[in-house]
């Protein structure tokens, strides 16, 4: 990676203190994000996948400083964000914005569409004149496929897909470079989901946007991402270019995820084997590799030693048995 990355994340930890059970609660630590490192290059789409509880939402919020990082570093164009005071963070928010999962919940029900989309402009570009702001809002609305006539309407008057367009317009109105999309299509209907994905792809092509696209759906991520990062219990399992990942997943967890995606064709319907162990508690992670309790390849080494993320054929995998899969 000779080109400097737009976003560099190094050994990021996000821990939450949790009260244990019982009358005399012990203080436990929930390691929602545990030693996560990755780069995001300008103009690419990094997909982040994992099951619920893998820390993908926490990660997207920590990148935007909506949740404080416990340790580690997040650099946007070389500027360290984790130690930045609130006031100094504000101008940087112009460069990174977020799209949320639940389109209706992320819009204030008491505000009109125009007010919602103008809000980041008011906060981040307070010097902008009213007329100019209004024009910018209208223009952005058109760009995400909203009618200008809808500017005075309220969120509850929109369907889920339309509401998500409002959320996208709000993120894009300040012309950010990086947009963190936290499951932006998970709550949408099938026919609407594809409209929004196409819209995100179009906007990226037109404005050279960079996305971090968080999702639990591997089929959707394959469609939009250039590279994919697989998270499990707050740890990175694999980071690989899209085509390589879907053609030949190296990590056994990636393989498990891929094999579980139901294919909409009865001729290809797969019957999964007997039930496997479910996710361990994030408060009591297994020793060594976090995935070993569900892994078919697990052996004594996986119990004893935590695998580090290492490079194999230009891909990054955290598994002791990755060579066997690569061969």
């Amino acid at each position: 990676m000779s080109e400097p990355a737009l976003l560099e994340v190094r050994a990021l930890d996000v821990h939450f203190p949790v009260r244990g059970p019982g009358l005399l609660p012990s203080r436990l630590t929930l390691r929602a994000i545990d030693q996560v490192s990755f780069d995001v290059r300008a103009g690419e789409v990094l997909g982040v996948v994992g099951e619920s509880g893998c820390g993908k939402s926490t990660l997207s919020r920590a990148l935007l400083k909506l949740i404080p990082a416990t340790a580690g570093s997040v650099r946007l164009r070389g500027v360290e964000l984790t130690t930045l005071p609130k006031a100094a963070m504000r101008p940087l928010r112009r460069s990174m914005q977020m799209i949320f999962q639940d389109p209706l919940a992320s819009l204030d029900p008491r505000m009109t569409v125009g007010e919602i989309i103008a809000e980041p402009l008011k906060a981040l570009l307070p010097g902008m004149e009213r007329a100019e702001r209004e024009q910018r809002v209208l223009r952005t609305m058109q760009h995400v496929g909203l009618l200008p006539a809808q500017i005075n309407r309220y969120p509850h008057e929109f369907s889920g897909g339309q509401a998500q367009r409002i959320g996208i317009a709000r993120a894009l109105v300040v012309q950010p470079q990086l947009v963190v999309c936290d499951e932006p299509v998970s709550a949408l209907d099938v026919s609407i989901k594809s409209q929004i994905i196409n819209l995100l792809l179009d906007l990226r092509a037109e404005h050279g946007l960079t996305y971090i696209f968080v999702a639990h759906d591997l089929a959707t991520v394959r469609h939009i991402a250039d590279r994919v990062m697989v998270l499990y219990l707050g740890r990175v399992m694999e980071i690989t270019d899209r085509d390589a990942l879907y053609a030949r997943p190296l990590h056994p967890y990636t393989r498990l995820l891929l094999s579980a995606v139901p294919i909409p064709d009865p001729a290809l319907a797969r019957r999964v084997g007997p039930t496997r162990e479910e996710l361990p508690s994030p408060l009591a992670l297994p020793s060594g590799c976090a995935f070993r309790t569900r892994c078919p390849l697990a052996d004594a080494r996986c119990v004893a030693e935590r695998p580090v993320l290492r490079e194999i054929d230009g891909r990054y995998v955290a598994c002791h048995h990755a060579e066997a899969a690569a061969a």
Binding site: M89, M111, A123, R170
Partner: peptide, 19 residues
């Protein structure tokens, strides 16, 4: 989520309470 969205948009605390 819309409060979180406002914070991500850089809106300050007093404004979030008021607006």
């Amino acid at each position: 989520e819309f409060i979180e969205a406002a914070r991500a948009s850089g809106v300050g605390t007093a404004t979030i309470i008021r607006r």
